[in-house]
Amino acid sequence: MFWTVTLSLMKGMLTTFQLFALTLLFAIPLGLVVSFGSMSRFTPLRGVVKVFVWIIRGTPLMLQLLVVYYGPGLLFDWDLLPRFQAVLVAFVINYACYFSEIFRGGIQSISRGQYEAGEVLGMTRSQIFFKVTLLQVIKRIVPPMSNEIITLVKDTSLARIIAVYEIIWNGQKFIKSDGIIWPLFYTAVFYLLFNGVLTILFGLLEKKLDYFRV
């Protein structure tokens, strides 16, 4: 039984991991775009972006999953998105908004003097961004990003609300089929291992950036 459960949970973990990795892959660049929008000097754009971020951060992710999955069908009579894709879209939008606020904080924490020093040395704006500020921003945002990314691992469990078979769903099904509850608790081991690895990776990254101070 233990092996049956473990195998089943590993299968669920695969879905969990896919959702996690794809969310990161899309949400980080999208978050950067959103953060630029929220810092735009063009007031209407900034306003729209801020309201959007407020809505996404101000409502439960679970609700957003349901809206993305059922919304288009209810409103426009469109076909439902495949379940996994619907979850992915909701996760990417949600996490992009959270990331964007972290990026904005990181970018705005760099002193004006760094930009001005680059300018008077004849650097272009993109040279200043890539050669001067980027690494300083990364160093500043590693701790909040690691927090957010570890939360993402656990948030993937919300996907089961629209029957995406991630790890919790795979643990829970044994209650009905075999009348045992321990597989559900066993899922915690998988989360702990995954987040343990992430914690170590972020620790290494922080250490790697420890050679300078901002």
């Binding site: 020093a117 050679y211 101070r213 901002v214």
Partner: peptide, 26 residues
Amino acid sequence: RLHFGLVFQSFNLFPQYTALRNVMLA
């Protein structure tokens, strides 16, 4: 701009580079 150089009150060195790299970068 390159006709002028500017030394700031608060130095504004680039923290992620060594002294030598700070001088060489631009």
